[in-house]
Design a protein around this nucleic acid. Structure first.
Lengths: 208, 208, 208, 208
DNA sequence: CATGAATGAGGTTTCATTCAT
DNA sequence: AATGAATGAAACCTCATTCAT
């Protein structure tokens, strides 16, 4: 049925866009990689740009659901929520790293206002959510009066830095080319541990 | 003379690549923006790709010099060096944000092995330098035994996150569109203060 | 249907290549002459070079069939076969003179190994066939022990010489510009008669 | 001095034109191969086309002188003259095969009227000379009443056929790629012997 | 006399898209 | 609904040539 094929095309598109970029991927490449007719992509999505939008919309919806689930547990204290956030983000971003890379590529570019707006609207709730937890923690006296916006930047920025390029990631980790850090449970744990440590001491330590 | 015009083309290219991406920038656009003949770009650089390489080479050389200067002061202790690094990086990356964005775009893409290697070779010394300072600080007992590689990621990743997109940066800062954070001294100070705080407590605090 | 248009393009290409050469013919010229869109040539053939290869392949197949037909009659003696060969070659080469000229142009050039090989593989069977007839005739005692390879060169070379350039051909024939020798039955007969005479006396005469 | 450099460029041009054709050779290639500045070729010759003309003019003059020398001996009979012609042509064409190939390429093409005329004017005297010898021999009763124009075609066409392509020549001779027939004395003798044999029997044999 | 710099024109190819079926 | 055929636009690049020095 159409939906399956649409999703197949979108998934193929994510793989290609992640590696070659949006402009660098031709619909010929995409059609060939997805094993469908060239005209079908326009037939289904209207245009290359609209395909991108469809892609973002579909995957963003999925993302939002996950995010809500992460936060549904209201019984945790602020520090516990931060731990959950760290764990959830590492898992989610590592898993969806291709899609993540695609939208961050587009986010970096200043063209295509509409797309940028879409992407900002996807990413913004993430940072807002964390920000709110930080603010709540500060209000309750559980957290120090830190720079909340930049603390969000530190949390997400650290993960993004590692996801940016497998090659560069391997280089700084001093690993061989065959290692895939993003699928290694040990590495994920290491990242979580580091982030929790950094954030805990930053947020919770009582300065004299 | 040729060098002036070459540099002018390169600077124009950085502006355009930063906004439209490498693939999204045509040499027609570039020639028009730089006010030169289309053929001249190939005359000077051989091809669009070689122009990119020339760009990277030239700016990378400049970057390396700056980095060396930052570290020339050997009289500082480990914590002092970290402060210098933070200040230097924020200044430098904010100032060269367009070039920075261009190479991070290319770094994200998996195509063009040769370019990726070039870029990795530019960025790697930065992280290595910081890593070494961390290791020295740990060896001297001045720093805690932290995860050095990921601490580097936290430092640079935080800055990168803010530089990634002006629009997104403004959104999370809750600022209006006209504000240019990267040229605001106050904001730079804020970023430096945050990073120093995060790193100091992470590195120097003695856990009980 | 596609095949018709493909063949139409190929035939137009032969006309143009024959007059302007491969490098001298732009696909713009070709598209205009064939009355098709410029992009269509690449759509059908992939590239200018592949168009050439398609052209050679198609026409070569036709050529091979003709050659086989020429030789199908096995009831002739060696001298009779030579006559058939002469008649067949004159007819065929005169008729296909444009294609013939195109591949001989390419044959003369040392570039493009692959094309040269293709062309050699087309032309070689022709000379081999004649050579074999000569060898058979010699073996049976019907022919003198002549230099078979060079006798082949004399046969084909004579025809090629006349086909090389209409202008030059007219000049040596002392004819006016409007005369088209290649379509004149009388001239074809003259060429056949000359070649048969030259070859018969060369092959069959018993030296004292 | 200028003349030396001009000649050097011309000789380089012949080598390149022979291999890549006139249109296939860019003045960049040529300048690089000759080790001179790109602008110099236009400076010396005015244009690429005029360079070709200069080339033809210079080499043609040399050719004409050689031809005259060949025929200066008036003491020979008709058959002897034919032998001298064969020997002279084989030597000369084999030696100047690159230039020969260049002008035959251009001769094959119908474009560029002026060049074709130039080339015809170079080649025509050759055939005319042989034709005259044949006519004289017939008039004196020494030769049969053969088709003089086509006999000329047979003589020159045979040589041209062998010179057309080294690769094809080797193929029909069943030789390896490393062999250079055009510089092998034995092969030249073989060609001369064959042509003399073919022509003698054709011209001198008295049919019953 | 000689040449590096510069350029307009035109080369081939690829693009996203549309159309007829 | 689906697709092979077709195409205008624009991509990158190379060309022969000119010009200022």
């Amino acid at each position: 049925m159409g939906t399956d094929k649409k999703e197949h095309i979108i998934n193929t598109a994510i793989e290609l866009f992640a590696v070659k970029g949006f402009e660098g991927t031709s619909i010929r490449d995409l059609a060939a990689a997805a094993g469908v007719n060239i005209a079908m992509i326009n037939y289904y999505f209207g245009s290359k740009e609209k395909l991108f939008e469809s892609m973002v919309e579909e995957k963003a919806a999925y993302t939002r659901i996950e995010l809500t689930e992460i936060m549904s547990n209201t019984s945790l204290n602020a520090a516990g929520k931060i731990d959950r956030i760290v764990e959830g983000f590492v898992e989610r971003l590592f898993r969806n790293r291709h899609f993540h890379r695609v939208i961050h590529q587009e986010l970096m570019l200043g063209d295509r206002q509409a797309m940028q707006d879409m992407i900002v609207n996807i990413l913004y709730p993430n940072s807002q959510l964390i920000k709110q937890i930080l603010l709540d923690g500060i209000a309750s006296g559980e957290f120090n009066k830190v720079d909340v916006e930049l603390t969000v930047a530190t949390l997400i920025g650290t993960i993004n830095y590692l996801l940016q390029s497998k090659k560069f990631c391997l280089k700084i980790l001093d690993e061989t080319e065959t290692y895939v850090p993003y699928e290694d449970e040990e590495f994920k744990t290491r990242v979580k541990t580091h982030l929790k440590a950094v954030l805990h001491i930053h947020l919770v330590h009582q300065p004299k």
